[in-house]
Design a protein around this nucleic acid. Sequence first.
DNA 1: AATTATTTTTAGATTAATCTAAATTTATTT
DNA 2: AAATAAATTTAGATTAATCTAAAAATAATT
Lengths: 227, 227
Amino acid sequence: MTIAEEDYLKVILKLELAQEELHARVTTNQVAEVIQTKPSSVTDMLKRLKEKSLVDYIKYKGIKLTGAGRKQALCLIRRHRLWETFLVEKLGLSWKTVHPVAEQLEHVHSDELLERLDEFLGHPAFDPHGEPIPNGEGKLPGCDGELMTTVKAGKNYTFMGIKEPTDTLLSYLDKIKLNIGSIFHVQDVEAYNGSVELEMGGKVCFLTYDVANKLVVKVNEKHENKN
Amino acid sequence: MTIAEEDYLKVILKLELAQEELHARVTTNQVAEVIQTKPSSVTDMLKRLKEKSLVDYIKYKGIKLTGAGRKQALCLIRRHRLWETFLVEKLGLSWKTVHPVAEQLEHVHSDELLERLDEFLGHPAFDPHGEPIPNGEGKLPGCDGELMTTVKAGKNYTFMGIKEPTDTLLSYLDKIKLNIGSIFHVQDVEAYNGSVELEMGGKVCFLTYDVANKLVVKVNEKHENKN
DNA sequence: AATTATTTTTAGATTAATCTAAATTTATTT
DNA sequence: AAATAAATTTAGATTAATCTAAAAATAATT
Ligand SMILES: [Mn+2]
Ligand SMILES: [Mn+2]
Ligand SMILES: [Mn+2]
Ligand SMILES: [Mn+2]
């Protein structure tokens, strides 16, 4: 697998997941747009990926990953997000700067390295941008989490991840010190507009419905009786 | 800088340093041998590197790195050895397995990453194979160290690095638990054959002249009066 | 349904990195 | 000093990855 091939597979998977209409095929131009290349270059690469049975590509009809292609893509996303976690958690780089570095590190091939890194980081479920890290079997975590808009007043939760992370949202969360892993208590959910009032380490903060609707949380059974 | 270009520069530097006759030019075949490629491929690459002023290459006469080329090569060696140190010290991989992984990691470009990694590792001077790690300015450490054959009985030393590391030597040192950074006391130096007797953590061990002659050590002033 | 616009593919070129086979230069022996 | 051997370079091909310009297929409008 070359670096370019891996990058194409990753982009195709991300486009499949982001697709409006489910099961719609990814198009040549979509890929070209994301990879920042010409559609003709994409066509060339698709032929090669088809040859290797990594994509199901039909001329003029679009692309879909095969099982093998999906597996490769998930592995690459896993490597990317584990490295980002390492760079932020261990080396103290900012989440704003780690992406291009992880974009290179993700292409280092070593199963043992990946296992040890995962262990070293404590098997994280989310990267510093709040994006879920696929596990060794390629399963995405956080499917058992709920959005903060479904939260109940009086209960305790852990902040797990972010649905569609954007730089502005991440900066906002930085500012109000709501970090992944934070445990908080829901004081109130305003019925009128869905805004959420929560308490965290003694401090109170308010989130609008739109923000709460991007945050993945999990009920914290252990802290349930904290009130 | 492509990965191939970087690898060539690194190999050329290593050949220059290992050269018997000082100032002799590195040859096309030497490079081909190490890179495991054909001499004609080396010639092609040398033309490209010359074009970029990274090597001083004269047809049929051999190669020498320019200042810029040497700087690049030292930077690559620095990255390689810092990553090897990380893999062994932090992730717990064996020094026997880290080389091919570092061979990939060394090509990740990020000045900030490199600085932070160096800091995270505590600015190590030697990698897990006992090879010196060039500092940010490309200077090699350990030039102030001495070989263990020049050691004096009754003094304390720190084991700094290895002159020409081989797998068998490293395995031997592993076995007798003589690790880089170890502090030891020289009990005796046998005048007859130059073998060294040293004490380390209560245990005594003997080294032949040939082994001692590969080990770089530094007098440990602070422990001088330990006797 | 015909025309126009958009998307996608093909054809032909380019660059880095490699190879094989042949030619050339340098080194070593007779 | 020739002749032979070894090292090195050139010539010509190949593959991955990209590009531009032109052709073909599909989609959207009149
Ligand atoms: Mn990438
Ligand atoms: Mn991320
Ligand atoms: Mn390398
Ligand atoms: Mn090493």
